[in-house]
Structure formats: C-alpha cells, structure tokens
C-alpha cells in the first residue's frame, strides 16, 4: 500500500515534471525573444534617427570627421548614462565632464541640442549598441552624405543664395535671415543664429555640405524640412563660406542708438506738422476774447 502510494506520487511528480516544468523555461525563452525583438525595433527607430540627426557630423566605421568622432563601438567605450547625457544635454555634459570637454576641444564645433526625448535617446543608444560593425554597415547609414563636398561650388551664386538675392529653389530661408556674415556691412549683422563667417574653418568642406543638406538643428528643422537645399546649392554656399573664411565679421550692436535717433526724428516731424495744430481752435479764440475783454481767466 505504502509502496503503491509512493509509486503513484513518483508518477505524479514525473508527470508534473514532464508537463509543467518546461513552461517557465519556454516562457523565459519567449520572453527573451520578445526582448530581442523589442531591442531590434528600438534599434531600427534609432537607425532612422541616426540617419536624420547624426550623419551630418558623425560616421559609424567611416572614421573621425572634422565635425565629430566616429561612433562605432561607442557603447563599449563609454557608459550608457554618459552617452545618454551627451545626446540629451550636450552643453551640460561639456560644461562639467572632463572627457566631454576634451572632445569639445578636439572638435571645435559645439554639438547642438538636438531636442530629442528620453525614448529617442534610448533608441539611438540601442542602434549604436548593435554588436558588430558589419551590422552597422548593413544599416546603410555610414556613407557620409558629403561626397558632393569634393566638387567645387560657385561662390558668387553661394553669396547670392546666402543674402537672398537669389532664392533657394525649394523656398528655404536665405541664411542672412538669421546668420551674420563678414563683408556685407551692417546687414551682415544678423543675430538670431551664430555668425557663419568662421563656419567653414570649423566644419570643413565635407562637414559644411552635409550640414547644409540635413540642417540637424531643431530651430531650423521646421523651416527646411519641406524646403531642403539642393546638393548644388549646398556646394555653392560652401564655396562662398570658404571664401569668407578668415574674414572678421563686423560687430553690430543692437542698433538701438540708430533707431533711437530715428525715433527722435519722427517726433521732430510730429512737432513740425503739429506746430499750428497745438494751438488748436478753441484755445486761441478764448485767449483772443480774454485779451479783448481784458478779463482774468476764469
């Protein structure tokens, strides 16, 4: 009886083991698969973000560029938290992290705040952490879009595009709307964005062309997203900026003094036109009557 009972228990345990023990293992396996799929999806999202936001300055496996370092294997060299912070707050990390500062010194063009969310930063990191370089290259984002930079552009046409006398073919804003430039007098003192007289020196031809073609700055994105520059326009602008490079831009103050003098002139004109008007109609009549009557004003 006892023996029979133990046999039954053993059989039950065996059955239990056969049918139920693999379940957690299977669940674990499918969970692993799910996580892998999730990472792959995230990396895919990161890949398109990388193509859109990072390729103007960074390559993966294509070597360092004047605009920024090669990012192949970055997740092995740096902590994820460090990379995340560099993506989300480049100015902040450059200000207080020695390694970041060292990079900023090596690549003088400051990395712009890309305006990315936490989730987008995670997607970018997932993409950057793809294990092999081959995988990255399969992502087809490594080719620097700056092949066009090697061809020489027309600096005169570039200048006309910069100041707006020749409009961009796709309707983008002329650079002078926001960026100052040497050699155009007071009008060269645009102050919304940074002065671009020294841009060529910082970016180089290749960086300049790729920058102009993608405009990876959040404030410029809405303006150029539907109105991109053509490859030829980017080359012409680069040629113009190369020509200007080394010239010192004219320092233009807020122009408040000039405008103040103008406003003073406007008030002087108001005075001139209103000289008679000030005397009015009623008041002189009242004065005249008072004088005639010789009475005191009431």
């Amino acid at each position: 009886m006892v023996k029979g009972t133990s046999v039954s228990i053993a059989a039950c345990l065996t059955l239990f083991a056969v049918f139920f023990l693999p379940l957690p293992l299977a669940a674990q396996e499918s969970g692993q698969l799910g996580a892998d799929r999730e990472i792959a999806q995230l990396a895919e999202k990161g890949e398109s973000l990388f193509a859109q936001k990072c390729t103007p300055c960074h390559a993966i496996g294509g070597g360092d560029r004047p605009t920024g370092p090669d990012l192949a294997g970055i997740t092995e060299r740096r902590e994820r938290q460090w990379i995340r912070r560099f993506i989300l707050d480049p100015q902040g990390i450059i200000a207080d992290d020695p390694a970041a500062r060292q990079l900023a010194e090596k690549y003088p063009m400051a990395m712009p705040d890309l305006g990315l969310s936490e989730a987008e930063a995670e997607a970018l990191i997932a993409f950057l952490a793809m294990p092999t370089e081959e995988e990255h290259q399969a992502g087809e984002v490594t080719a620097p879009p700056a092949a066009a930079g090697t061809q020489a552009g027309d600096p005169r046409r570039g200048e006309a595009l910069y100041i707006g006398s020749t409009p961009f073919s796709q309707g983008g804003a002329p650079c002078l709307a926001c960026h100052g430039i040497a050699g155009h007098g007071l009008a060269g003192g645009a102050s919304f964005g940074p002065d671009l007289s020294a841009a060529y020196a910082s970016y180089g031809a290749e960086g300049m062309v790729s920058m102009l073609e993608s405009m990876p700055f959040p404030s410029m994105e809405p303006i150029y997203l539907d109105h991109p520059l053509t490859a030829e326009e980017s080359r012409d602008l680069t040629a113009f900026l190369a020509e200007v490079s080394g010239e010192t831009p004219r320092v233009v103050g807020p122009l408040a003094r000039d405008a103040g003098l103008g406003a003073l002139f406007f008030f002087a004109v108001t005075l001139a036109f209103g000289w008679h008007r000030l005397r009015g109609v009623r008041r002189p009549l009242v004065e005249k009557m008072r004088n005639r009557i010789g009475g005191e004003p009431r």
Binding site: S165, H184, G185, A187, L255, D258, G262, F265, F266
Partner: peptide
C-alpha cells in the same frame, strides 16, 4: 523676400521698422 533680398535694402527696411517700433 525680393524687397529684403539686397543687404542695403534689408538694412533700410529693418532700421525703418526699428525707428517706427521705438516710436
């Protein structure tokens, strides 16, 4: 855009706007 497409015209346009604005 054509009106503001020359540096001198752009400057005159802007300074006129600033004068009127200050007024």
């Amino acid at each position: 855009g054509v009106l503001a497409g020359r540096p001198l015209r752009l400057y005159l346009l802007e300074i006129t706007g600033m004068v009127l604005g200050m007024t």
